[in-house]
Amino acid sequence: MPTKTKIIEPKKNAKNVLIATVGADKKAPKPKKVNLEYRVKSYFKYDSQLKKQFYVISIFTVKEFSSLNYEISVDVKKNKKNIDIHLLGLNTRQNFYMQARTASCDLFFEDLYGEHIVSIIKQDGNTNQFVIDYNIFKKEIKLKEFILPKKTKSTTFSDVEIITNLFTFKGE
């Protein structure tokens, strides 16, 4: 916050003009601490068995779990260019091979072209939105914008990464 300089008028016969700096004694507000809970990753994936090109959105918890393997349970709504991913909670996953790992889920979409608003929505309504531009012809995925919807008083709990080294396409 910029400080304002205020000149206090001297009393009669005063020798000096007092100059006070309003707000100078206040500390600058600390940047809000971001508590990342989820990581969103997106990439192209060609399934050679199904012979289909997929657009993958994966969600991972930041926290690692060592006692059980978990998957993130979600409910997904896709309406034109809006993809709403409601986070429902964690479920245990059948797996005999145990190791410390994050919880995750992979969502496979078949037709994403152009800018899409991907909303990650927690149970309490806290929402993080990412505008992601998919261009299969250029083999590009770009993160265009991060939005915190004002009406839900949301805070940042996730981020997005485009994983280019996981990109696979037909014929490669």
């Binding site: 349970s73 409910d75 409601h86 429902l88 909670g89 479920n91």
Partner: peptide, 14 residues
């Protein structure tokens, strides 16, 4: 069917 049960309840509620 724990996971599916929660998903269905959540969908109904939504």
């Amino acid at each position: 069917s724990v996971s599916m049960h929660i998903k269905l309840l959540s969908r109904i509620s939504r």
